Simulated assay, not measured.
Amino acid sequence: MNEPLSLDADQARERLAELTVVDVRTPGEYASGHVPGALNVPLDRLGRAVPELREAAARGGLLVVCQSGGRSADACARLAAHGVAAIDLAGGTSGWAARGHGLDRPVGAPAKPVWAMDRQVRLVAGSLVLLGLALGLLVHPAFQLLSAGVAGGLVFSALTDTCGMALMLGKLPYNRAAKNGGPTLDATLARLRQEA
């Protein structure tokens, strides 16, 4: 029987015991609440985890999760390029929580949740556009190039389905594991190897 390409929250919940769940959000987002039993392998570090994820997929299935489904679909495509079969959680953790299913948080995670990465990107991009426009009006028209650069970056991001700004924001301290009580990638990879 062929595995489905995606599962909705209810289907995934029924199969949770047989699947290895991998959350590809930043450690800060993961610490804000994740599908029970999910292991954190941030999307920007996915390549490093391919051997362990291949073994997990062979053992019983690999369910990939993000906030709303975009990054997990990208992760599934990247894994498929390496010959690793993975299932996407349609709707991500947002869809999971909307169906009334509980989310876990690591012990020691801060009480204030980290914003989802797409929200962080929208804030920074919008702020840079407004800054460029304001400085262009108040200081010198050349500052409007900042707004044009951000607009060009957003178009490039849409055309390539990548986001350089998200990669940069993911490296900030509040998005990293040590600041959020979550496991490091090395600890996650060790756990995946132990479950083999």
Rank of each mutant, 00 (worst) to 15 (best):
F143K: 07
A49Y: 07
K179G: 11
D8P: 06
D23T: 06
G149S: 13
A58T: 00
R119E: 08
D8T: 15
D23V: 08
R105T: 01
G91I: 03
L159S: 09
M165S: 12
L137P: 02
V50H: 06
G126M: 02
S157A: 15
V114I: 05
A98T: 09
P183I: 08
E195F: 05
V124L: 08
F156M: 09
R193Q: 12
A134L: 14
V124M: 06
G108Q: 02
D74Y: 00
V50T: 07
S94H: 13
V41Q: 11
P141W: 11
D161S: 14
Q120E: 02
L53Q: 01
A49T: 02
G164W: 05
L43S: 10
A17Y: 05
L133C: 03
P51E: 05
V139Q: 12
V124P: 05
Q67W: 11
P36E: 04
D74N: 12
R105Q: 05
V124E: 04
I87S: 01
W115V: 03
P141Y: 10
A9D: 11
S6N: 00
L79Y: 01
G152W: 08
L5T: 13
P113S: 06
L63A: 03
N175Q: 14
T160Y: 15
L189M: 14
G60T: 06
P110N: 10
R15I: 00
A58P: 04
E3C: 07
G182V: 06
S157N: 15
D74T: 13
M165G: 11
V65L: 06
G92K: 01
Y30S: 02
A80D: 06
E29G: 10
E55T: 12
R122T: 01
L123S: 07
G91S: 05
V121I: 11
P173I: 07
V65F: 09
G152K: 01
P113M: 08
L167E: 13
L63R: 01
W115K: 10
L128E: 07
L46E: 08
K171W: 15
Y174K: 03
Q11G: 12
